[in-house]
């Protein structure tokens, strides 16, 4: 049983530590990388808590897909001079204070509820032979294994919702692709919003954008 605690502490420490790191670092690339590590540790936690399918999905979709997408975003929007955009000191201080207050609140809530304390993983459940089809997989296909069938609990599983989710995902991706297509033409760049940026920087920007437009005819959607 000791392993469970040790592994839990390890994963928790990594997850929280790198989450904090994301906050403290100012370099956006490092942030992306720390985020990857933090989310991987989280998926570890999921496995520990017995949600292995979710852990797997977390790794595949979340870390593999979403964060890659984010990294793409970082690359696309990285400006040539590595501008350090740091918020003002007071904002950081205030946000920190707020975070602390929120943490105290959530922690006291988490700790306050007795039923969430100390049941610990049941030995029996751990050493049961792993089932070939995990309850979640069956659930997805439409057989509920967790409720006892006789009192009418064998409700249909979650097949239909997942179909809807996938269609939803497709639509969103198409939309994102459409939104992000580069409509920039040389002309539209010239009329800068008056209050926007210094005029002299505008020319080299135009050159740079044409370069991008030339080599990537249409930004392909994020890998699914």
């Amino acid at each position: 049983m000791i392993w469970h605690s040790v592994l839990f502490t390890l994963f928790a420490a990594i997850a929280c530590g790198f989450a904090m790191a994301v906050v403290f670092t100012s370099n956006v690339v490092r942030m992306a990388f720390y985020l990857v590590i933090s989310l991987s540790a989280t998926s570890g936690l999921f496995f520990l808590a017995g949600a292995d399918f979710v852990g797997a999905m977390q790794l595949m979709i979340y870390v593999g897909g979403t964060l890659v997408l984010l990294i793409f975003g970082v690359m696309l929007t990285a400006q040539q001079r590595f501008v350090q955009m740091r918020p003002s000191r007071s904002e950081v201080l205030l946000a920190g204070l707020l975070g602390a207050a929120l943490l105290v609140l959530l922690a006291s809530a988490a700790v306050g509820v007795p039923t969430w304390r100390g049941s610990g993983p049941k030995a029996a459940a751990l050493d049961e032979p792993p089932l070939t089809a995990t309850p979640i997989a069956l659930g997805l296909l439409g057989f509920r294994v967790d409720g006892d069938p006789d009192d009418g609990q064998n409700r249909a599983g979650y097949l239909l919702p997942f179909e809807i989710i996938s269609v939803h995902l497709l639509v969103v991706l198409v939309g994102a692709a459409y939104l992000a297509r580069t409509r920039l033409t040389a002309g539209s760049l010239a009329q800068q919003p008056p209050g926007g940026f210094e005029q002299d920087a505008a020319e080299d920007r135009i050159a740079e954008v044409e370069a991008i437009a030339a080599d990537s005819p249409g930004t392909e959607g994020p890998p699914t």
């Binding site: 904002e91 205030l94 946000a95 707020l98 207050a101 929120l102 609140l105």
Partner: peptide, 20 residues
Amino acid sequence: LRQYVFFLALGVVLVSAASL
């Protein structure tokens, strides 16, 4: 945007503190 998020969180804190 950032201040809006800040106010959001601040609201949560105050409401929960009050209700607690």
